[in-house]
């Protein structure tokens, strides 16, 4: 046999063995002692790394949970109740009650309701449009429609409908809150999903006086106080000419929807009313 082959095999073998020894030594020398529960918790998490919990990624969140040893204020909004229960069992803790949330868009200033009065010719980004002007519909609180929320969403759960110019949330929403942060006008709110996914909320953020708000948008909240008076459960409050429905007090009785003169209160997934549909009742929209 040609000795050069032999030499090659021996040299390469020695190099390999040497490297393996060094690697082994380095690995044992620099070994990081880590709580094995971190791995277990991290595995239980959805691994979306969305940042909805307030930490950079799922692993950071797992580290934080194991380190503090409690689940107070540490919630994975994406995994929800199920995941939190699993984590609680890993750590031997009590699972906190997690309310299932969803993002809702609190503006209904579609092209139809709030027609364009200007033509925007700048960068197609809400953040930039917001610092430049009031928006094409003229409402300084309304949706700008350039889809910063859509770009922020990692779950394909919010999309701007080209027909209305408004974002719509679908069932993929995990309530991570990325869109809430992305919206320069704070139009998107995290609300409890509600029983059977039924929700009632005010689809307006306009704090201007009624007449001014109405000028820009058909469906603006004009702060007329009718809903507040109508509500028997003290669920609705009015501040700065704007009504807000407390989701925890609302019983979904729908009285407010009926009295609202501008149809700015939206009911989602509620069954059709028993009374025959009236011509003046608000159109029902499913999210």
């Amino acid at each position: 046999m040609d000795s050069s082959i032999l030499y090659s095999i021996i040299t390469l073998g020695l190099i390999g063995a040497g490297s393996a020894a060094i690697l082994y030594w380095v690995a044992s020398k620099f070994k990081v002692e880590e709580d094995p529960r971190i791995d277990a918790v991290a595995e239980a998490l959805p691994q979306a790394n969305c940042g909805g919990c307030g930490y950079a990624g799922c692993r950071n969140f797992a580290e934080a949970i194991v380190k503090t040893g409690s689940l107070d204020n540490l919630i994975c909004p994406v995994g929800g109740d199920e995941v939190m229960k699993r984590i609680a069992s890993i750590l031997g803790l009590e699972a906190p009650a997690v309310e299932s949330m969803i993002a809702v868009v609190r503006c209904n200033g579609s092209f139809q309701n709030s027609p364009s009065k200007f033509q925007y010719d700048g960068v197609k980004s809400c953040a930039f449009a917001h610092i430049t002007f009031t928006g094409e519909g003229g409402c300084p609180y309304g949706c700008l429609g350039h889809g910063d929320c859509e770009r922020a969403c990692t779950f394909d759960a919010i999309h701007v409908n080209p027909a209305t110019g408004l974002p719509e949330v679908n069932d993929k929403c995990t309530a991570c809150g990325a869109c809430v942060k992305a919206c320069p006008r704070n139009i998107i709110e995290m609300r409890p999903r509600g029983k059977k996914d039924r929700r009632i909320y005010v689809t307006c953020m306009n704090k201007e006086k009624g007449a001014v708000a109405r000028k820009n948008c058909e469906v603006a909240c004009i702060g007329c106080n009718k809903c507040v008076k109508e509500c028997r459960f003290d669920a609705i409050t009015l501040s700065n000419n704007l009504a807000y429905i407390d989701p925890h007090k609302c019983t979904l009785c729908r009285k407010c929807v009926e009295v609202c003169p501008t149809n700015c209160i939206l009911e989602v997934n509620l069954p059709p009313r028993k009374r025959a549909a009236q011509s003046d009742s608000p159109a029902e929209i499913t999210a």
Binding site: F118, Q119, Y120, D121, G122
Partner: peptide, 8 residues
């Protein structure tokens, strides 16, 4: 016509 708006 609607006025056109953009940054400088």
């Amino acid at each position: 016509n609607p006025l056109i708006v953009s940054g400088s």
